[in-house]
Simulated assay, not measured.
Amino acid sequence: METSTILIIFVSSLLIGITAYSTYTAFGPGSKLLRDPFEEHED
């Protein structure tokens, strides 16, 4: 394979991995422990 193809595959898989981890963190089982700072300071 050419170097550019390997680089594209690496960057794409990294982006997909970060997106999947962020979605899991936001909506997964641990999301109940997250706090909303905007909701805490409402009047």
Score class of each variant (00 low, 15 high):
M1V: 08
E2S: 08
E2I: 05
E2K: 14
S4Q: 07
T5R: 14
T5A: 10
L7C: 07
L7E: 11
L7K: 10
I8L: 14
I8S: 07
I9F: 10
F10D: 04
S12V: 10
S12I: 13
S13V: 15
S13H: 13
S13I: 14
L14K: 04
L14R: 03
L14N: 09
L15R: 03
L15P: 00
L15D: 01
I16H: 00
G17S: 06
G17V: 02
I18E: 05
Y21V: 03
Y21L: 12
Y21K: 11
Y21S: 13
S22Y: 10
S22K: 13
T23I: 13
Y24M: 04
Y24D: 09
T25Q: 09
T25I: 08
A26F: 02
A26P: 00
F27L: 03
F27A: 01
G28L: 00
G28I: 00
S31Q: 02
S31M: 02
K32H: 12
K32S: 15
L33W: 15
L34V: 08
L34K: 14
R35C: 05
D36R: 01
D36L: 02
P37N: 02
F38E: 02
F38L: 11
E39M: 04
E39S: 09
E40C: 12
E42M: 06
D43V: 06
